[in-house]
């Protein structure tokens, strides 16, 4: 419970981070992978927003990410400012198998650049790369569990079956180069990620951590200790934290519970 962890985080720097992007691109899954190193095949859509925290170490500093995972559907848009106000970082997520999701991502970036905290660090994440990679961890492999199969159903465009494992590339709708070029032009960090395999997830948060003007935040925050709010997440993964320099990811899938 909240009180137990308080006091132990005096030295950490709090970073408020918000996730934005079209519905079902995998925002919640990205956070879940980062925070608990888990993947759930069928995550419920986020209503309003969800809140999670994760501590991580970067060189000698401890960062505590306060992550706001927002709802993706267009009509929740007007609520977004409530969540991105005062955010120091944003991860704007799109789905590499869905071209329109990049367009939505661009409009989020535009909005953030105009409306949010002027120093906000923005990262662009092209999620679900596992679907377009012919690697061993790609779907359809004999070893995959039932829950994985369902994930594929859920993410595939309606009426289509997920691309045959032989040619996964045809699922890709956003070329890496195109997104990369856009990110460079707009001054964003860029990654292709997979919440399912864990690829690229930790990297986003590492790079953001590097780019955040931490001294600035330290100076700005009214007293670094915030009893009650600190370490409030009762999740087991929280205590251990994530070492950002270490990129190993367990490939354990979450059970369907």
């Amino acid at each position: 419970m909240s009180d137990s962890a308080s006091g132990s985080v005096d030295k950490s720097v709090q970073v408020k981070l918000v996730l934005l992007g079209e519905a079902a691109v995998g925002k919640s899954s990205v956070v879940l992978r980062f925070v608990s190193n888990e993947f759930q095949a069928n995550k419920e859509p986020t209503i309003g927003a969800a809140f999670l925290t994760q501590k991580c170490r970067l060189e000698d500093r401890v960062l505590r990410y306060e992550i706001w995972d927002t709802a993706g559907q267009e009509r929740f848009h007007s609520l977004a400012p409530m969540y991105y106000r005062n955010a120091q970082a944003a991860v704007v997520v799109y789905d590499v198998t869905k071209a329109s999701s990049l367009e939505k991502a661009k409009s989020w970036v535009k909005e953030l650049q105009r409306q949010a905290n002027p120093n906000i660090v923005i990262a662009l994440a092209g999620n679900k790369v596992d679907l377009v990679q012919p690697s061993a961890s790609s779907p359809g492999a004999a070893s995959s569990s039932e829950s994985e199969d369902e994930a594929d159903d859920a993410t595939a465009t309606p009426g289509e079956t997920p691309g045959s494992p032989g040619e996964p590339e045809n699922l890709r709708q956003v070329p890496r180069e195109e997104a990369q070029a856009y990110a460079t032009e707009a001054g964003l960090l860029f990654f292709e990620t997979s919440a399912k395999t864990g690829e690229g997830i930790v990297d986003i948060f590492t790079e953001i951590a590097k780019k955040i003007p931490i001294e600035h935040i330290l100076a700005a925050t009214r007293g670094t200790t915030r009893p009650g709010a600190a370490g409030a997440r009762s999740n087991g993964a929280q205590e251990s934290g994530v070492n950002l320099e270490e990129n190993a990811v367990k490939s354990k899938d979450a059970c369907n519970c």
């Binding site: 519905a23 079902a24 095949a41 069928n42 419920e44 859509p45 159903d153 859920a154």
Partner: peptide, 8 residues
Amino acid sequence: KDLHRSLP
């Protein structure tokens, strides 16, 4: 998009 994400 949400069918498989409703009380899963």
